[in-house]
Design a binder for these strands. Structure first.
Lengths: 123, 123
DNA sequence: CTGGATCCCCGGTGATACTG
DNA sequence: CAGTATCACCGGGGATCCAG
């Protein structure tokens, strides 16, 4: 019931290890929105991700079976990335999260702006 | 083509800033499972979170309006944490993520184990 | 074009001690 | 009991250069 935690394969820590990194979700959403993409296309679409971090991120996503990586031995080389079925199965959940953020972030930011909330005295 | 990314209020980065930290999701799920809880109860339930990190985490969650913090000026002091409506509205999505992890993590781990073929010649 | 290899920094996190 | 306050650490992430 509440004993998710801290045994070896806690699903929450598992989730975080896959989509909790700085760029994973952005790469997944980008691929979902645009279909198969090349390395540079992903990088341009995200805009501020370095080559290094994009490489590391797609490697992790590939190792998790969330995306597949197809290498075409041409000159110049071409590498294409596509969501796998497993990756696609995760997208509806991520989209719900994005929706939630869109529905809530404005109000949250407003509340934070007036952080002058005085301490209430509880009964 | 989607331009979620990299402008100031990217919903994905927003989400990650709220639930992407190491302990946020665990605290939310714990509170959801057990209702109102005291500081020490949360800490014991999670097991391996330090006082410092629990404090920082609940402060952030409170600032985001995901949990509320009620202080009762007694001796000894008592502080109770409860999900807010906004926090509760996030829980179904987190539960879906947990479900997804439970449905997929075993297979992912198996695949990773297979890929982890011992390389004799590392050189 | 798609990375690999290095170097380095910073902030999230941990450990410990102290307090109202 | 429920926190602060400090110090230390490590690894995620950034910047840059090099390579097939």
């Amino acid at each position: 019931m509440k004993e998710f935690h801290h045994h070896k394969f806690c699903p929450i820590r598992d989730i975080l290890s896959r989509i909790g990194s700085k760029w994973s979700m952005l790469v997944l959403v980008t691929l979902d929105a645009n279909g198969t993409m090349r390395f540079n296309e992903i990088q341009k679409s995200i805009g501020d991700i370095s080559q290094r971090m994009l490489t590391l991120t797609v490697r992790t996503l590939e190792a998790d079976g969330l995306i597949k990586r197809d290498v075409y031995p041409e000159v110049p080389p071409r590498v294409e990335y596509t969501l796998t079925d497993r990756g696609r199965s995760l997208m509806p959940l991520l989209k719900e999260l994005v929706r939630w953020a869109l529905d809530n972030q404005e109000q949250i930011l407003e509340e934070r702006a007036k952080l002058d909330v005085p301490e209430e005295v509880k009964e």
